[in-house]
Design a binder for these strands. Structure first.
Length: 240
DNA sequence: AACTTACGCAACCGCGAAAAG
DNA sequence: TCTTTTCGCGGTTGCGTAAGT
């Protein structure tokens, strides 16, 4: 299936843009096989591809790289995405590290398609139905977020995130009752992963909360239908 | 059958961080 | 130390296809 139009153009530097051809894929794969990935600018210059380094990297990472999974996101993967998104927000590359064979782009697309839309639909409905009460909830939510931000402990390096982006302090927190490794082990256990997404009641609660979260509210992790701000008092539950 | 809408996803863009000079 | 280049990330776009009317 031809995508991204059929038109291949060139940018200001003369690099080709648009869909990759099978010949280009073959060239890139062969070049990376011989020389390894990385050094994308030299890949662009030396491989014979008239593509920018950026374009080469993207094509390799998202499409040609060995070990990539094809096909639908499984329920287990979906649950991991949701829960890691609640942990880290839109840090797709970090989330992708816990889903072998899936790319950040794929996860990002999946999230946007499935949850952003449903989130906004729910939000619209809720807005129509409960405009007043929602406003009140938001005010209460802001107070809790302030509490979360005041109590949360930032721990970038624990999960090997070397990037340390500017907004890190708002998303990467420490669970008060277990460390991150414990948490992630728990996440990837089938019994836990299946539990929320398989239960329509819990799912509704969880989605209702997660989909309406903004970046700051991602500081919260939902556990057993309650939520607590990461780093907050483990003996206190916070209903979002 | 024709048309419209929604979905899925490859690819591009802009920005910030890291590395190199 | 400063500047330039490269890399990687998240956000966004736009096209093909499937589903609905």
């Amino acid at each position: 299936m031809m995508r991204w139009g059929s038109i291949v153009t060139t940018d200001q530097q003369g690099w080709r843009k648009g869909p990759w051809t099978p010949e280009e894929d073959k060239l890139l794969s062969e070049y990376v096989r011989l020389h390894g990935d990385g050094r994308w600018s030299s890949v662009a210059r030396s491989s014979g591809l008239n593509r920018s380094g950026k374009s080469c990297r993207l094509r390799w990472v998202n499409y040609l790289r060995p070990g990539l999974k094809r096909g639908q996101i499984t329920p287990q993967e979906e649950a991991i995405i949701i829960e890691l998104h609640a942990l880290w927000g839109n840090r797709w590359s970090t989330i992708a590290r816990y889903l072998p064979g899936r790319t950040d782009n794929e996860i990002k697309n999946y999230w946007r398609t499935h949850y952003k839309k449903r989130s906004s639909q729910k939000q619209e409905k809720r807005k129509a139905d409960h405009d007043h009460s929602k406003q009140k909830q938001q005010e209460e939510g802001r107070e809790r977020i302030e509490l979360a931000n005041n109590t949360a402990a930032v721990d970038h390096d624990h999960l090997g995130d070397q990037q340390g982006r500017q907004d890190d302090q708002t998303v990467m927190m420490t669970c008060p009752t277990m460390d991150q490794d414990q948490w992630l082990r728990l996440l990837t256990q089938d019994s836990v992963v299946g539990s929320w997404s398989d239960n329509p009641v819990v799912e509704e609660e969880l989605w209702g909360d997660l989909w309406n979260m903004d970046d700051h509210a991602s500081n919260y992790i939902n556990c057993n239908r309650t939520a607590f701000p990461m780093g907050g008092d483990p003996n206190t539950t916070y209903n979002i």
